[in-house]
Structure formats: C-alpha cells, structure tokens
Simulated scan of single mutants.
Amino acid sequence: MPTVIFAVLAGLAFLLFLARTRQDPRRFGNAVLLGLCLVLLTLALLAQVAAGSAPAPLLAAVTLAFALLALGVLALAFLLIANGVTMVRKEGPRPANLLSGLAGLAVLGCVTLTVTAADVDSPPLQRVAGAVLLVAGYVSYVFLSFLAYASLYARLTVRHDVDFVVVLGSGLIGGSRVPPLLASRLERARAVYEAQAARGAPPVLVTSGGQGPDEDLPEADAMAGYLIARGVPERHVVRENRSRTTEENLRFSEAFMRERVPDHWCVVVTNNFHVFRAALTARRTGVNGQVIGSPTAAYFWPSATIREFAAIFLHYRTVNLGSCVLLALMGFLVPS
C-alpha cells in the first residue's frame, strides 16, 4: 500500500511540475516539484523493497545504488577539495573561489560526525549529529533539485525568431579586453544572430554592462567592439552601459527593448552555470524571453554552480533558513 501511495503522489507532483513549467519555466518552484517527484519515486521503490515484493534484479540494483551512493559521497568530497585547490591556483584565493573546497570539507565533516556519533555512546553528540544530518539532507534536496532542473532548463532550445539578443557582461582583463568567459557568451550570441540573420530577420544585439572601478571603459563597449570586429554590423549592436549587477543588466535592457518593440521576444545569453539564476531574475524583472548558456571551463563549473545555488538559496532565505532552523531543532530535541 505505501508503494502505491508514494507512486500516486509522485505522479501528481510530476503533472503539477509539467503544468507549471509549461506556464513559465523560469520558476524555482518547478525545481522543487521535480525534486519532490524524484524523492517520492525513490520512497515508492524503497517501500516495495521493504515489503519484500521487489523482484531480485530490482533488489540487487537498489543495494548496488546505495553502495555507490556511499562511495560517491566520499569521492565527491575529495573531488570538491581538489577542485578548490585548482580554483585557488588558477583564479586566486578570492572567497568565491574557495566554495568548492569548503563544500568538500563540509561533506567530509558530516560523514565524520555521523560515523563518530554512531560509534560513541554520547547522547549529546548523537543529537548534534541528528540536527546536522537533517539540515544537510534538506540542503542536499534543494541543491539536487536546483541542479536537475537547471540542467533541464539549460537544454531548452530557441524555438522561434527573437527581436533582441541580450549579452550579460562580466569583468574585463586589464581594464579593456574581453576575457574568455565573456567571449564565450559573445560567441553564443553571435551564433544566434547569424542563424536568424540567415533567415532574413537579424535581431538586435544588446551588450549589457557598465564600467567597474578597475576598468578603462564600460563592458558594453568592449563587448560591442568584439562583435563588430567579428563581422556583426554596427547598426545591429546596441550598448547598455549603465548596469552593475545582473538585475540591472536585465532591467535596463528590458526598458530599452520595450521602448523599441513593446511586444518583443528576446534571448538572454550568459554562461551555462548562470542560466537558471538569470532566468529567475529575468522573470522577476519582467523580461519577456528565454535565457541560454555558453560553455564554461570544466574546472570553473563546480565553484560557480555552488555560488549560483547559494545566491538562490539565500534569495528565498525566509523559507530555506526557517526550514533549516526547524529541522535542526527537531534533530537536537528528539531523543535518539
């Protein structure tokens, strides 16, 4: 009976996920629903195994999956720590570059605490371990939901012609040169432009980025120069050179696009790790369009993804931090 209940609930969660995603794919609630669906399916599977009604191949698969999960957690911790070392070596010891290493140490800390609490007859330590595990479980659920749905959203294709292609800026090298990270965004935007221009309806490229304190010119000007030097007609490039944040990138660009074409449709280009958070921001700022991603160096991806998740997690801080506090209290107060 529990198997059927969990399976039905998973089906309902999936139908709701499809309906909400069809209505607007730029919602974090979609990620939560997808994660809930996967959790319920897992519970249905475990309920079937616990009831003894699972066929032998399924039972073997579940056992193997849990063994791989345990090994995978340890492997993940060491890979994250190694990536943290690589980030510091290649990008410098800035706080954002420490995230993957710190995440790996946190995973190892949770594993060590759990094993120690199970081995030592210490009720206070077991309560602490229970609280930490509940919070870690919640954060892991939200993170995996984010990761799964962000991967799906990043694979959405541009289905019809667009009026504008907005390229989000990032820092310049030496105050004036486009770095590889930003060049990948510009190349993806140029590919969209050229594909649509070949059909006879070239969109307007909007380069969006202001001038930082260590930059010799606005990012938008450097980006526009990059595109024009590679064959994009200057009349098809517009500069938005006031913005300092992603929200301002989108808000200022949207104001320009709405003034030019009130009923417009656009594509926003950023790096693949930033796509989903940019999509959430686009929805919040009223941008009528889709966000697409460009490639990022593999070593850069873990820390960047963790940074994006942390920003989203803290954006919904009331729900997320409240849930963490409640779970921590439950774990600490409930007798072991």
Rank of each mutant, 00 (worst) to 15 (best):
F6M: 03
A7L: 13
L9R: 10
A10Y: 00
F17M: 05
F17K: 04
L18H: 04
R22N: 03
R27I: 11
G29C: 05
A31C: 01
L40A: 03
L45P: 04
Q48R: 14
A56W: 12
P57M: 09
A61E: 04
A61V: 08
V62R: 04
L64K: 01
L68Q: 09
L71R: 03
A75M: 12
P93F: 10
P95D: 02
L108G: 11
D119L: 15
Q126H: 10
Y138C: 09
S140F: 03
Y149D: 11
L152D: 10
L152K: 08
A154E: 15
V158Y: 08
V158H: 10
R159G: 07
D161S: 12
V165Y: 07
G171A: 15
I173S: 14
E187A: 06
E187P: 06
A198D: 10
G200H: 08
G200N: 05
T207Y: 00
D214V: 09
L217P: 01
A222W: 02
Y226H: 04
G231C: 11
P233A: 10
H236S: 12
V238W: 01
R242N: 07
S243M: 05
F256Y: 14
H264S: 08
H264V: 04
W265E: 07
V269E: 02
V269D: 00
V275Y: 09
A282D: 01
A298D: 10
A298P: 08
I312D: 05
I312F: 08
H315W: 11
R317L: 04
S323L: 11
V325T: 07
M330G: 09
V334S: 08
